[in-house]
Design a protein around this nucleic acid. Sequence first.
RNA 1: GGAGCUGUGGCCGAGAGGCUGAAGGCGGCGGUUUGCUAAACCGUUAUACGAUUUAAAGUCGUAUCGAGGGUUCGAAUCCCUCCGGCUCCGCCA
Length: 429
Amino acid sequence: MHDIRAIREQPAQFAAGLSRRGMGEAQALSEDILTRDKALRSLQQRLQEAQARRNDAARQIGAAKAQKDEGRAAALMGEVAGLREEIQKGEEEERALKLEVEEILAAIPNLPAGDAPDGADENDNVEVVARRFGASPQIDKPLEHFALGEALEQMDFARAAKISGARFVILSGALARLERALGAFMLDIHTREFGYREVSPPLLVRDGAMFGTGQLPKFHEDLFHTTSGYWLIPTAEVSLTNYVNDEILDEADLPLRMTAWTPCFRAEAGSAGKDTHGLIRMHQFSKVELVSIVAAESSDAEHERMTDCAQEVLKRLGLHHRVMALCTGDMGFAAKKTYDIEVWLPGQNRFREISSCSNCGDFQGRRMNARYRPKGEKNLKFVHTLNGSALAIGRTLVAILENYQQTDGSILIPEALRPYMNGDEKITK
RNA sequence: GGAGCUGUGGCCGAGAGGCUGAAGGCGGCGGUUUGCUAAACCGUUAUACGAUUUAAAGUCGUAUCGAGGGUUCGAAUCCCUCCGGCUCCGCCA
């Protein structure tokens, strides 16, 4: 959510930021908002004058009645009789205008950070070379993960389709266990070593929570909605970030770092035909999420730190990966800057996104009305929020299968994971 | 599913048609005292929009007591609808 005052004061920056994100009509949009804002304020001015006259008369009527001067009271009442309708009409218009402006603002994405690379789509993303890790393993004729999983008879798309349709999977045996191992492994790293607090949050949330993080009102078609009005979370970011919704925190309590391992649910509307094989793009998947709630000055540093935390998981699993700074045209709605982590998949012979770490600045804080009291300052500030996957578990499982496949079809278990896998070295049929 | 209660500032809590942006307490901020800390004491303490001003401060006006609507010259207070929260009963992991 944008601050109307910021738009008022710096309309050029606002429009420039939006057009960097690829909004062609940014200039017109900015002007439209300011026109409505101006209309609203001049309406308010007229309304206030009428209200002042009414209040003054009401006070005099009260005084007259107290002095038992009924004649004077009646005369005054006659004077303000016409004001009532005028005020009611004015209030109605004011509400409608306010709502319009709010609706427009609620649908506008965050402005990109100054150092987010400009660009139109994923082809313009820029690698953060210093963050690259490892090298692709030498595998002769590598298989894709679904071929490996199905051959192991521990990854079953056909039966899942029978039960739930496309974009679902059944893992079983060691692969089901691998999913559990990965979740526990990741949580242990983040809680023991990086100071994140483990949280087990609701998976069904209300409209307000979805609005707070920015999924609503614009992206409802990407979400599952229950008949009783709940939304299924597409990421634990929603539950964890809204933890501070409508609260005022002490700066001393920041940063607030939370992690959760949850299922995520995505309708995947509009991605028909994309990633139809395998478990890259499911309606339901498991993910360990990181969320940081921080003071305004520290969000940039926290973003780097969070990305380190996510990369650390991949490093311990020995997985080759690179980090991309998303260009302005490829970033999500709420983000001002995003790093995607892409893991190398030998079976696909390409890098694939396995994590996305975003700094949302105060964008979500303002939508959620989540504030903090800065030390030594009088006024409240909106918290800055960050979220990152660390990591998407389904895709991590894919990466392990493809990177650790053996010629006999078995899968070597990365050493860091073995304590979580009953000490086993391999997954076999 | 049935029955009832409740929503006031940063927090707790009073107010039950006008003098209430709202008592009191806690917290926050500033200060006095003190070797330091604590305690005590004093002061201060919401936001938005507008007017005034070269600007800031200040002053004034308007709105805001969950949200919206209604009654009234006048609503935190009365009425209606909605939304949250809580309790009990039933069912259930």
